[in-house]
């Protein structure tokens, strides 16, 4: 891996920006160069949110992702908006719990991950983002799952330490959901 450029998109409140931060932090923990660029603007809960993440062995040039090696798509409007940015042969991870439509792209590797359903099975709908992140990390091996957990501890802080376990479980289940496909 010389460089991975990722777009993560969905509704505000789905943990789209946190997912990007956790991934970036994990990259940093592994000594890589990282950038995290959020969309910002007049949005409310339920509006759209997205971020660009770059994890690289080299210095990061432009932090703006126009040719994504992967896109993690949490809702339908994001699929329509961002599927075109994935490079040919790139990974497109689709949250199939909320998106029944198929991608119009035939030249990318599309993975359907029922992130919300798996999260509900575990017992906390809020960890849907970690489910799909687990799948992404399993597919790309961009960082180790251990680094993700470590960065979770940093991002969640000591007051939410009790949530580490369920997040860990979510990451594992997400990884399992794509293991048979790889």
């Amino acid at each position: 891996m010389a460089e991975q450029q990722i777009i993560i998109a969905g509704f505000g409140g789905q943990g789209v920006l946190s997912m990007g931060q956790i991934l970036s932090y994990a990259g940093l923990l592994e000594g890589k160069n990282v950038s995290w660029l959020p969309s910002y603007g007049p949005e409310m809960r339920g509006g759209t949110a997205n971020c660009n993440v770059i994890i690289s062995e080299e210095l990061v040039g432009s932090p703006i992702v126009k040719e994504a090696d992967a896109a993690i798509i949490m809702n339908l409007p994001s699929l329509e908006k961002f599927e075109k940015f994935v490079v040919s042969g790139g990974n497109l991870l689709i949250n199939s719990s909320l998106i029944s439509e198929k991608t119009s792209r035939r030249d990318v590797k599309a993975y359907k991950i029922p992130a919300n359903d798996i999260a509900n099975e575990i017992g906390n709908a809020k960890v849907a983002n970690m489910v799909i992140l687990g799948a992404y990390v399993e597919l790309t091996k961009i960082v180790s799952p251990k680094s993700i957990i470590q960065s979770l501890e940093k991002v969640l802080g000591s007051s939410k330490r009790n949530l580490i376990q369920i997040n860990e479980e979510a990451l594992k289940r997400g990884a399992e959901s794509v293991k048979c496909l790889v």
Binding site: Q21, V34, S35, L37, Y40, P63, I64
Partner: peptide, 10 residues
């Protein structure tokens, strides 16, 4: 600019 203000880096 807005990007430098909003983005995260090491």
């Amino acid at each position: 600019d807005g990007i430098l203000g909003q983005m995260m880096e090491a």
